[in-house]
Nucleic acid binder design. Sequence first.
DNA 1: TATGAATGAGCCTTCATTCAT
DNA 2: GATGAATGAAGGCTCATTCAT
Lengths: 202, 202, 202, 202
Amino acid sequence: MAYQKTEKVKKKIENKKESIIKVAKEVLANESYSAISIKSIAKKAGIATGTFYLYFSNKEKLVETIVDEMYAKLLDSIKKERAKHEQVIDKLQASMEATIRLFAKEQHLAKILLVQIPSFNHAFNRKLDEIEKELIKLTLADLKELTDQGMLPKQDIQISAMAFVGSFRQVMISWLREGEPKNIEEAYQTLIQYNLRGLGKS
Amino acid sequence: MAYQKTEKVKKKIENKKESIIKVAKEVLANESYSAISIKSIAKKAGIATGTFYLYFSNKEKLVETIVDEMYAKLLDSIKKERAKHEQVIDKLQASMEATIRLFAKEQHLAKILLVQIPSFNHAFNRKLDEIEKELIKLTLADLKELTDQGMLPKQDIQISAMAFVGSFRQVMISWLREGEPKNIEEAYQTLIQYNLRGLGKS
Amino acid sequence: MAYQKTEKVKKKIENKKESIIKVAKEVLANESYSAISIKSIAKKAGIATGTFYLYFSNKEKLVETIVDEMYAKLLDSIKKERAKHEQVIDKLQASMEATIRLFAKEQHLAKILLVQIPSFNHAFNRKLDEIEKELIKLTLADLKELTDQGMLPKQDIQISAMAFVGSFRQVMISWLREGEPKNIEEAYQTLIQYNLRGLGKS
Amino acid sequence: MAYQKTEKVKKKIENKKESIIKVAKEVLANESYSAISIKSIAKKAGIATGTFYLYFSNKEKLVETIVDEMYAKLLDSIKKERAKHEQVIDKLQASMEATIRLFAKEQHLAKILLVQIPSFNHAFNRKLDEIEKELIKLTLADLKELTDQGMLPKQDIQISAMAFVGSFRQVMISWLREGEPKNIEEAYQTLIQYNLRGLGKS
DNA sequence: TATGAATGAGCCTTCATTCAT
DNA sequence: GATGAATGAAGGCTCATTCAT
């Protein structure tokens, strides 16, 4: 009689939202932000334009949702990987390893985060900046601890942290855009070595 | 006499084109891409919208022209600085120093190249990628030579070159966007040290 | 038994229909037409949007129903008040008095009829026009009788009837919208006097 | 050479704005507000949708322009007619006569002001209310003066002014909507007589 | 009956580009 | 060359109505 919002229905709704997000991710990974019209996303998701607005209050909210989700995934990934280690230096490596692993596994995510979002409008860029800044902050904390432990020579660790993250970012982007290096996991070894040396790690 | 006139006219045209570019640069450095309408640029340049199209076939061409010009300026700057040195390692440093000096002196240029253009649409990003790739290529060449001279330990210099450039890029962007580090020239010293150590320079 | 059930069901339906109408009246009296969405009315009535269409074939029908109901109430009120009097002139006064009394007592109704509906689309206004025309017709009939009784000087009673109703309408609206006159019942006395004089009632 | 904004061009522009207004008036006089889409107006005016926005910043501005223009016209008409008379009572009559004459001559205007605008959105209704209130205020001023001159018996002239204006309004609307009375100028005589009697003018 | 997710036509508005003057 | 009015496709979003459950 009455319309019971059963588990099944709920799941279906969640699925639809997920399917919109999924389609949007695909579009985002390949087209520019301006190319993402609600109409086109709706079409690819097999729904009417109006239906989109049942799940997202507006276009911006959709991208925000996606970025937030990716950010959460990334931080979660890093946290888990770091937990496996005791030493700060290992934790630092773990952070980068987790990042690279995640991006390597989910290129969609990587492409959106590193390649596409930067070409979005200011609002999203600010969002992305936060993510980047967060990564640098995490790195900085590690560097600070290493410095306190006397494992790093005196240096401007603020700059070092940026350099550290920046070097990884550059390689990841090249890998995503040019497919070079071919094997990102191998490159990771070189990168770690480069940066540890750069830090003057003794 | 007829020839004279042509020269004069040519100069006049060149002047107007320059003035459009100048205005566009100012706008580009301060507004978001979506805010850059041909109408507004034309207005600021003191011409009619239609007139714009006498000098640029379309909006994209304008940005392309600007980026190309900046690119040329950057490469020129690097070339000149490198010429002052004999040793490859010094040339490598000179490249980075030239880049940072130029960006520090012309923040307009830096902001457009590092902050604004990346948030444009695909077409412009491709252009920007080329510049980034060129810088990496230049670096790579230096690393190769240093390797041949036995001054660097065995490593994947392709990756190292990216890491090298990426670390600089990251710091520059932070400087442009956050104003951190406050003194980019000082940061440069740290960066050079970081990267030379990272390369394992003996 | 089966019959009983039907009665009960019918009543239930009628109840729900009534509750929708009640909510709609409240909304109508306070919001602008564009603010009256079926979704919002349904929500306030505690039903689903789809359910609304079980009771009204469309949005227009709802307003029509409300207007009709109000119209009936108004006419009924007038009829009852008129029945109390013998003289035509008293009946005429009674009509206006009944109208004003009803509107004063049920401002909801007055606001919808005089303020809101006029700002709806054509369809509803036509409905409202009918009501206005009916009031004029009633007035006209009285004036005709008064003329036949020789109580009014020769005049175009068609026009007089309109003037009569129009003067009341104007004051009512001001009262509803501006709260001026403060006391509508007092104003009524002035209005009656004005119009009786206007008619040249001897 | 340069594009001279000659008088001719200016006039042409003004003409286009006028032609948009003219079309809009026609549409307004016959369709409901919601039926006025920019697209349809543009089409009827023989221009592209975008062109509309060269002359009006948005849809609302268009209607505002029209209403303001009509209001100005009406007040101007009244002022001119009043100026011809010395006695207040004549000025009062002149006001009404001017209004009726204008509406009779420009039925478009009358229909929009009396029939259509009331069914527009709140913003315009407020505008219209102002016009109505202004007319009442003008009437009130006359009544006050007449009272001071001892030409009117004691009465609530606030109410009388409303009744006065309301009676005219009602007749005008019937004339516009039903075509009844057939001859509005004749009806005017009846109306004036009715209202002067109503005021108790001695 | 009751539900509320789904629909999609249609709205207003913007802006790169064209073209008559 | 220069002008700027004109174009019209395309975008984001709303809401009365439908329909599978």
